[in-house]
Structures are given as structure tokens and as C-alpha cells.
């Protein structure tokens, strides 16, 4: 099952010392079920806070967050997964154990089946018994991604999942993810400041500025997409104009 999420006039204020910081100011956004929506914005514009309020890591001060199904009916307590910018794997657990933690309530046979499935999906079959310290940065990030999808979430939140990687690894992983996402039947919300990544992966892009969604853009190109496709450049130009 997939879940959409609708945020209406959501506000959030933190106290940073004695200074009040408002990363979200009456923000409204709708993420359609089954789509990959990207929230694009400069560093520090409140993108990560947006993810945190959606998955309940932070409480909102005002506004409304509602989850809904394909048919528009309310969806109480959807299964939400979050993929962090750093893979956040537990170093004392093997790859298999890290993945199993996300599906610990399932029977053992089902756990094993899913671990093999997701490892194949992220092209890391054969690494199940390795420990995080034995993985490269790119491999660890793939495992982080695998942990996010192994529970088959209704909503997958991706917090700059490729942001900490070097250019080559990032580009490869982005293109691989473009293929992977076509096999995932879930709604995804991606947070990034990378215009190219946003255009490569998204169905819709929302541009965030000063705690609000300032612009929106639909990307009407077939998936999976590839870097170098000249059709991407028109969207990249448009988004670049939003930035400047």
C-alpha cells in the first residue's frame, strides 16, 4: 500500500540558544501516492526539519499533517521509513543483522527472503555477512537504502541519501536508484540541494525557500533516466533559475 501526505500551513520554531529559528513557516505541500517528490532547497532552508515532522521525529507547532491512500481516504499510522544522509549502520551488527532489525517482527524465513531480495536490488548480494567497517562509503549508503526499503514502507523519506558521497560514487548510485525506484511500489519524498539529482529522480519537484514551498515543477520524462539525456537540461535550467 502507498501513502500520500499532505501538509497544510505547517510551522515549526526552535530555540537556538536565545534565538528563535523557524525552519517551517506555514508550509503547505502534497506528496502524491506512488510518486517521488523532491523538496529542493539551499542548505539550512528547513528541508530536514520537514522530513522529521513528517516521520514524527519532531512535533509541529501549528498546521496539519495528514496521510491518505490512493483513493483519497485517510491513512492512519502508515509505515514510514527514513534513509539518512549518513548510512547510520550499527557497527556491531553485520549487514544482514542491520537489515533484519528493520523487519524484526517478521518470521525468520521471510526476513531471510527479504534480505536477499533487497541486497540483490541494491546490487550487493554476497555482502550479508560483512560488517559496516568492511564496506566502502558507497556500499554502506546502499545498505542504508536497503534498510529503508526492506520493510516495504508506505512512505519512504530520503534525507540527502547521496549527499555525503564523492562525485563518481554519487552519480553511479543516483542512476542505479533511478532504476531501483521503478521497482519500488511506494511513495517517496526526497530532500536534496542537488538540482541534477532532483531532475534525474523526481516526478514532482518543490522548491523550498524561507520555510515555505516557493515553486513547484512536474518532470514529465520517462523513467529510468540517465545523466547525459538532453531532455533533463531544460528542467535543470528552470530549477537553476529558482536558485538564483
Amino acid at each position: 500500500m502507498v501513502a500520500g501526505v499532505s501538509l497544510v500551513d505547517v510551522s515549526k520554531t526552535f530555540l537556538d540558544g536565545k534565538r528563535a529559528v523557524s525552519p517551517l513557516k506555514d508550509l503547505s505541500l502534497t506528496v502524491q501516492p506512488g510518486k517521488l517528490t523532491t523538496v529542493l532547497g539551499k542548505s539550512g532552508c528547513g528541508k530536514t526539519t520537514l522530513l522529521k515532522v513528517i516521520c514524527g521525529l519532531e512535533k509541529i507547532d501549528s498546521g496539519k499533517i495528514q496521510f491518505f491512500r490512493d483513493d483519497g481516504s485517510a491513512f492512519e499510522d502508515p509505515k514510514i521509513s527514513l534513509v539518512f544522509q549518513d548510512p547510520r549502520l550499527l557497527p556491531w551488527k553485520s549487514v544482514r543483522e542491520n537489515l533484519e532489525l528493520a523487519i524484526r517482527t517478521l518470521p525468520a524465513a521471510e526476513q531471510e527472503k527479504r534480505v536477499n531480495e533487497v541486497l540483490e536490488l541494491v546490487q550487493l548480494s554476497g555482502t550479508a555477512d560483512l560488517y559496516p567497517a568492511q564496506l566502502s562509503g558507497g556500499m554502506a549508503q546502499r545498505i542504508g537504502l536497503a534498510r529503508g526499503i526492506i520493510s516495504r514502507p508506505d512512505l519512504l523519506l530520503l534525507d540527502e541519501p547521496f549527499g555525503a558521497l564523492d562525485f563518481m560514487t554519487r552519480s553511479k548510485l543516483q542512476m542505479d536508484f533511478s532504476k531501483i525506484q521503478t521497482e519500488l511500489e511506494t511513495t517517496m519524498l526526497l530532500i536534496t540541494h542537488d538540482i541534477n539529482e532532483a531532475v534525474l529522480l523526481s516526478d514532482d519537484i518543490a522548491f523550498m525557500r524561507d520555510g515555505k514551498i516557493a515553486e513547484s515543477l512536474d518532470i514529465n520524462l520517462p523513467k529510468p533516466r540517465r545523466y547525459g539525456d538532453t531532455n533533463l537540461s531544460q528542467y535543470q535550467k528552470q530549477l537553476f533559475n529558482f536558485f538564483i
Binding site: K52, C55, G56, L57, I80, S81, L82, F84, D86, R88, L90, L101, A102
Partner: peptide
């Protein structure tokens, strides 16, 4: 950071 991980899991 593991607090967030345990909350999301």
C-alpha cells in the same frame, strides 16, 4: 543519531 534511528525503526 542512533536515537533518531531507533525512533524511525
Amino acid at each position: 543519531a542512533y536515537d533518531e534511528l531507533s525512533q524511525t525503526l
